[in-house]
Nucleic acid binder design. Structure first.
Length: 322
DNA sequence: GAGGGGAGCGCG
DNA sequence: AAAGCGCGCTCCCCTC
């Protein structure tokens, strides 16, 4: 209705702005720790079904960025004097994992050639040259790529793209004709989930799916979507956790003065002395890419290190350790 | 006053 | 009837 009438549009606007005010603008300043003058979140390692971290009190994994107004809140997060914030994020990690898990030739090839994956998908699905892909076609391909990771149906894709169900089904059919390995993987993971009662990540962490054989079709389909999504989201979570361990080891062994301060699912954020930004950025990327997993151990002498932050108000893990 | 649960909205 | 995965926080209504 907001597309056709001013009042619903105004209501939606109000909801967005009031969310920004009540959750961020009003609250975050009250959460500055008087001792450190900083905002400290708590990360939880045993909450999510897929192996991601979660962040609470405050949640720093949902700081606004998508809207123009929201970005202004993010601007308030700055590095200390003499430092810079360095953020490194994995590009299209879940789609790359899908390429690996499915071993689909076309998808692997697109990534191997460093192509813009949404554009490449559009070219294949709509049967045009890479140069002929329109903005609209790329947008559709992007929705298809994201939708697939979540196990979306023609109904959902159509709604997302504002096209009919049949039109959306055509897109999906084209997609699977282009990337048959992906189709096979989706079918296979459903079967395996039903057979085993669980799915697992590349590194073997399991998610049990008790509803995968439910007689209620709706519940069973929901479990099937989880079966498709969890190995991708979960493998991505495994990969960044392994990177975090490596980055932590490296930071402890080096004297860069850099600190790892945040994780947001596919990105790590460090604060780095200005003079060390180039050096730290290079190594950070190498460690996240897994290029130095063994090498650095040759010059790192491990020492016992106590990590974590003592708190007296921790709600979830134990009384004084988060 | 504490806590549950749904709606709605912020993020990846 | 529902048809897109994973989270946390605020507001509101409700119960205890």
């Amino acid at each position: 209705m907001a597309l056709d009438y001013p009042l619903p549009k105004l209501i939606i606007e109000h909801r967005g702005l009031s969310k920004l005010k009540s959750t961020y603008t009003d609250k975050l300043p009250l959460m500055v720790d008087p001792a450190t003058k900083r905002i400290h979140t708590s990360y939880h390692q045993a909450v999510t079904a897929t192996g991601r971290l979660s962040s609470t009190d405050p949640n720093l994994q949902n700081i606004p960025i998508r809207s123009q107004e929201g970005r202004r809140i993010r601007q308030a997060f700055v590095a200390p004097e003499g430092y810079k914030l360095v953020a490194a994020d994995y590009s299209q990690i879940e789609l790359r994992i899908m390429a690996h898990l499915s071993q689909d030739k076309g998808l692997l090839n697109a990534f191997a050639h460093g192509e813009d994956i949404h554009k490449a998908t559009a070219a294949e699905v709509f049967g045009v040259g890479l140069d002929q892909v329109s903005t609209e076609q790329r947008r559709s391909a992007k929705a298809i790529n994201f939708g697939l990771i979540y196990g979306m149906s023609a109904f959902g894709l159509g709604k997302q793209l504002g096209v009919g169900r049949n039109e959306a089904q055509k897109y999906i059919d084209h997609y699977f004709a282009t990337y048959p390995g992906v189709q096979h993987y989706m079918d296979d993971i459903r079967m395996k989930a039903a057979e085993n009662g669980y799915v697992e990540t590349l590194f073997g962490r399991r998610l049990y799916l008790p509803e995968i054989k439910a007689s209620n079709g709706m519940r069973r389909q929901a479990a099937e979507r989880t079966a498709i999504n969890a190995p991708m989201q979960g493998t991505a979570a495994d990969i960044i956790k392994r990177a975090m361990v490596k980055v932590d080891d490296w930071l402890l062994s080096s004297d860069s003065g850099a600190r790892m301060i945040m994780q947001v699912h596919d990105e790590l954020i460090l604060e780095v002395p200005e003079a060390k930004v180039a050096e730290v950025s290079t190594t950070l990327v190498e460690l996240m890419q897994g290029l130095r997993s063994w090498m650095y151990r040759y010059w790192w002498k491990p020492e016992p290190v106590i990590t974590g932050t003592r708190r007296t108000d921790c709600k979830r893990v134990s009384p004084n350790f988060c």
